[in-house]
């Protein structure tokens, strides 16, 4: 039976299963750079000024590194589920969703908490 319906638009195919099965097989951190640039500029001023700038920059970068490493939010949210995050990008340690067959569900997930508008 004709199947090439694109070429023969007046014809349609209604009988038989699809028989074309297998037919088509076949750095640098910005803070660090800023600090280096700052030191190089300071050397053109004086050694004492450079020393002060080095100490100051090191203290500042240490502070920011500490702040970045500290999680903004950390906590176990459900039994067996832990999420934590930094200010930059989330870090998730346990599955947030399941890929599986689509059974019938009417919102009865065991982990789903009732919505509360608080």
């Amino acid at each position: 039976m004709e199947q090439d319906n694109e070429d023969r638009p007046e014809r349609v195919r209604l009988a038989g299963a699809g028989d074309d099965y297998y037919a088509r097989q076949p750095g640098e951190l910005r803070a660090g750079r800023w600090r280096d640039d700052g030191v190089r500029r300071a050397r053109r001023v004086s050694n004492w000024t450079a020393a002060v700038l080095v100490v100051g920059a090191a203290a500042a970068s240490g502070y920011f590194a500490h702040a970045a490493a500290a999680p903004v939010v950390t906590g176990a949210t459900q039994p067996g589920t832990t999420v934590s995050g930094t200010g930059q990008k989330a870090s998730v340690t346990h599955p947030v969703v399941t890929s599986g067959g689509s059974g019938v569900v009417v919102g009865q997930s065991g982990q789903a908490a009732a919505y509360r508008d608080n």
Binding site: V72, V73, T77, Q78, V83, S84, V92, V97, A112
Partner: peptide, 15 residues
């Protein structure tokens, strides 16, 4: 929508 494990954290999940 119902919240899923929403006791804080860096992701929000709802269903």
């Amino acid at each position: 929508w119902k919240l899923v494990h929403v006791d804080g954290g860096s992701v929000g999940v709802a269903e």
